[in-house]
Nucleic acid binder design. Sequence first.
DNA 1: CATACATGTGTAATCGATTAACTACGCCCT
DNA 2: AGGGCGTAGTTAATCGATTACACATGTATG
Lengths: 321, 321
Amino acid sequence: MKDVAQHAGVSTATVSRVLNGHAAPTPETRERVLAAIEELGYRPNALARSLRTTSTQTLGLVISDLLNPFFAEIARAVEDEARSHGYCVVIGNADESAEQEATYVRTLLDRRVDGLLLCPATDDPSLVREVSAGGVPLVLLDRTVRGATCPVVRADGSEALTALARRLVGAGHTRIGVIAGPPNTSTGRERTDVLTGSLGGLAQVVHGDFRQESGSQAAAKLIDGGATALVAMDNLMGLGALGEVRARGLQIPHDIALAVFDDQPWFPLLDPPITVIAQPTVEMGRAAARSLLALINGQQPDDVRLTAKLVLRGSLGEAEL
Amino acid sequence: MKDVAQHAGVSTATVSRVLNGHAAPTPETRERVLAAIEELGYRPNALARSLRTTSTQTLGLVISDLLNPFFAEIARAVEDEARSHGYCVVIGNADESAEQEATYVRTLLDRRVDGLLLCPATDDPSLVREVSAGGVPLVLLDRTVRGATCPVVRADGSEALTALARRLVGAGHTRIGVIAGPPNTSTGRERTDVLTGSLGGLAQVVHGDFRQESGSQAAAKLIDGGATALVAMDNLMGLGALGEVRARGLQIPHDIALAVFDDQPWFPLLDPPITVIAQPTVEMGRAAARSLLALINGQQPDDVRLTAKLVLRGSLGEAEL
DNA sequence: CATACATGTGTAATCGATTAACTACGCCCT
DNA sequence: AGGGCGTAGTTAATCGATTACACATGTATG
């Protein structure tokens, strides 16, 4: 910057004013400075700028798993929304591990992100409290924690789940296998509670960990237990369950019915296409980013609760008639 | 930091020394400082530190599309490798747009990443030159550019593609539809060149843009043109092609054969499972990260060329016998 | 006993920006 | 002509760390 100033025959203060579009400099001075910048190929040092202004124009996003398309879509939406407001997004991958999540959150705070979006790995509120104590704007996304005091953006699947339950029961299924998420996550618990609630005593629950492998194992257990229908509570476990069903040579929906929480672009391509509960991922990501930006600007955004929808495609068989 | 120093009755220099594990401070002083840090919940400001040391312990990764599982896996692998060496990764999403790619690269440079991994959207070398001119360590990943002067990490699909061609020809296909990537990307061009080369005059080529929608359109054109086999040059276009095939009620492999470049966890679940050319994504990501770290440490890593493999699963029909 | 040297800590310059406070210069008005 | 005022631009403090250099103390050496 000093070089630019010298080159243009002004002080660094003037260069800075030109850079930041401040009122002062004469059009003529401005021209000279811009020419010098161009000539020297100068680019301002974002670190120094942030240090001085205490604003990085950056949001942190800590998600459970980048390989899970659900989170990838969310990440993508967050990024789009953030960029349109002049913010960057730094993504952290917690890999469904509370420990790694905490590491990432701290790293992001150390780098002074202006705000943090978090999909908490567990419903333990201690990490959230730590962030709040540091005074950093925080919004929870997809999942919440016990006694959360910050805005939360999530999708409500209750309606879709009860509709699903009604159909399964109506079609005469009496042993319905539920491949549940971890009980220490809000989404894991709530979805399962709603579904088993509406299924009366017909549900058999096996807990997985939101990953493919656990989906296969759970499906195996449930099929062995005589289940005639399976509901996987997220898309990766759904993938695992589907693998197990195929491996056993079972036909969907003839031998077993299947529904999955979360949609995927390839679900419609299966034979039969898979019935899902689709979450509005893009809207969730955008809403979360908007809430966080509002929080950063000193407003108090409300919680956002979007609605997940049941999409019937054929993998439930007669339950869809 | 000043607070911590005061609290421990030392100077900031000493606090800094404790923090950085410098030789000097007495065990007793060290204890006092650590206690003060603990008590005040002090966390060092990474911005200030980086400004002073001109090292951010951060790598930039600019990829073409986060929603493409191929790149998501790469990103994941890069991150793992980087973290194990104490580095963070900031991911930028170019969305297959050269313009957005350039924007992201510049943003990352402004933030003074220690090095940059780039999957170039086009084979135009100007952006690469810009980065090199800035003296920032750079490694290209998956794709290269014309006259690249930096290390490149990629997968070689030639062998797999010629093997695939041999099988298709051997099975008597005479109109083979190739859904090609953009000709201004190295992977798009090379894969297509190799395949059409080995197919003699039997190939009909339609260019897509590595996205799902273009895959459907290309497939439609090729099917209308009488193709009895389709080869999609990346997984998203493969997804699109598959959709088109399904939409027309065609049976694989009876009515049409299909192979896709890039594997996906759900390909084996289709009926029939899809034959693919699988790239070693995880190894590519890790290798790229390692090369970049080597470059940062002043070494001169060689280009890395891994091998993609043909995985036969049934979607080629008699060509696989 | 004076000198040399090692050791632990403090002082202050520095990284590259922003910005409050100040200066210098003209212009207008009485 | 001189005081008041607006404007363009400069000077210097500051953000929060690192680190070369200086300094003080204690120990070994001639």
